[in-house]
């Protein structure tokens, strides 16, 4: 039980996927203009990340290791993730157009999102068991969600402040992310 708690707290707060590991910065900067799109993106990333980590773990355990083709790890993972995203998207469009309306536009963005592949590879490198690595992926997704929702809250508030001309949107967003990362460093060393 303690180990589960450990993994959860470290994945969400300490080595947060954005602030400590620098994974998934492109969608983080791109999609966080408004809180509604940001939360949509957060949920989509969490969902796909958990799903992808589960499948890549199985793939790794039953295909890569027995056949000693670890070097195919990157290509197999990314292939699975890309196709998975496309299939999920088509299914979503048919089953529930409303949910698709909320999450649909983010799915193509996810294929080029470093966080998904990053978390999958990290969970392999850390040699977690199946349950722990899925939990790790889910909590990293939550960490991403937490970071992007706070960030979009701030960006929406400073949208019409008179920021100097050359600092509008992306540079000021980067500086805000910097200060947020500084704040989250408070959690470092939390887990003994």
């Amino acid at each position: 039980m303690k180990e589960v708690l450990l993994v959860m707290v470290s994945a969400i707060f300490i080595n947060n996927v954005i602030f400590a590991r620098f994974l998934g910065i492109c969608p983080y900067m791109g999609v966080s203009k408004r809180i509604s799109t940001a939360s949509g993106m957060g949920m989509a990333v969490t969902f796909v990340m958990t799903f992808a980590t589960a499948i890549t773990f199985i793939l790794n355990k039953f295909v890569l290791i027995p056949f000693h083709i670890e070097y195919l790890q990157t290509i197999m993972f990314i292939l699975v993730i890309a196709s998975l995203v496309q299939i999920v998207e088509i299914a979503l469009k048919k089953i529930s157009p409303a949910l698709y309306q909320a999450l649909g536009i983010f799915l193509p963005l996810i294929t080029t999102n470093c966080a998904i592949l990053g978390v999958a590879i990290l969970s392999i490198q850390n040699e977690y068991s199946f349950f722990i690595s899925v939990l790790f992926a889910f909590c990293s997704g939550l960490g991403f969600c937490l970071a992007i929702i706070i960030f979009s809250g701030i960006r929406e508030r400073i949208e019409d402040a008179d920021i100097p001309e050359c600092f509008k949107n992306i540079p000021i967003a980067l500086i805000t992310a910097g200060i947020l990362a500084m704040a989250f460093m408070g959690f470092s060393g939390l887990v003994k």
């Binding site: 290509i75 699975v80 088509i90």
Partner: peptide, 19 residues
């Protein structure tokens, strides 16, 4: 490796088509 990768890509391609 060749067999495995080709098999994987085939299955995935098929899934996309079916979907």
């Amino acid at each position: 490796p060749i067999l495995i990768l080709s098999a994987l890509t085939f299955i995935l391609g098929l899934c996309i088509l079916l979907a």
